[in-house]
């Protein structure tokens, strides 16, 4: 039974029931760090220091240990991102099929200032990432949780244009 205190946590409190079920699947509670961090990131869009403290309390480790884990994995955002986060693959198969051009296209068309990773209107953030396992559909990107491959200017506009 989760303690009442956990239920009052500002970020994870309303997901404690689900979190307890996840923790129970593992022989050792610490294994639930990644799944609980994923929940924290869903709650706020990124992982703040406060979120790390809550994860630490829920999983039963120190905040420093949570930070150690967060900072190892590239998909955890340690800073706020746009409303829609684009992870564009830049590794070889995508790079030889237009990833550079896709990057330039999106950055120009969707209002990114040079060198910035969040668009001026805060609608999108973009990160050129290493291989996302969509090599046979290059060039490819993830927008939020959804994969889009065989990108063309039109298909990019179809996807991004629909998002608020």
């Amino acid at each position: 039974m989760p303690s009442e205190r956990l239920r009052t946590l500002p970020i994870l409190g309303d997901r404690i029931g689900e979190i307890e079920q996840i923790c129970a699947k593992y022989p050792e509670r610490r294994s639930a760090i990644l799944p609980v961090l994923w929940i924290a990131q869903k709650q706020e869009g990124w992982i703040s220091e406060d979120a790390m403290k809550e994860v630490a309390e829920v999983v039963g480790v120190t905040a420093a240990e949570v930070y150690e884990v967060v900072s190892f994995y590239t998909m955890f955002h340690q800073h706020p991102v746009g409303r829609h986060h684009i992870a564009l693959c830049k590794t070889l198969s995508c790079a030889v099929c237009g990833a550079h051009e896709v990057s330039a296209y999106i950055r120009e068309k969707y209002g990114f200032d040079a060198g910035k990773s969040i668009s001026r209107d805060g609608r999108f953030s973009i990160e050129e990432v290493e291989c996302i396992g969509a090599c046979t559909e290059a060039p490819a990107m993830l927008v939020g949780e959804k994969l889009h491959g065989d990108l063309t200017p039109k298909s990019i506009d179809d996807v991004l244009g629909k998002l608020d």
């Binding site: 099929c97 237009g98 051009e101 296209y105 200017p153």
Partner: peptide, 14 residues
């Protein structure tokens, strides 16, 4: 020009 989309190269000035 690397980016082939819809069977043709995009951005000719690449």
């Amino acid at each position: 020009r690397y980016w082939m989309a819809d069977g043709k190269f995009v951005n000719e000035t690449f």
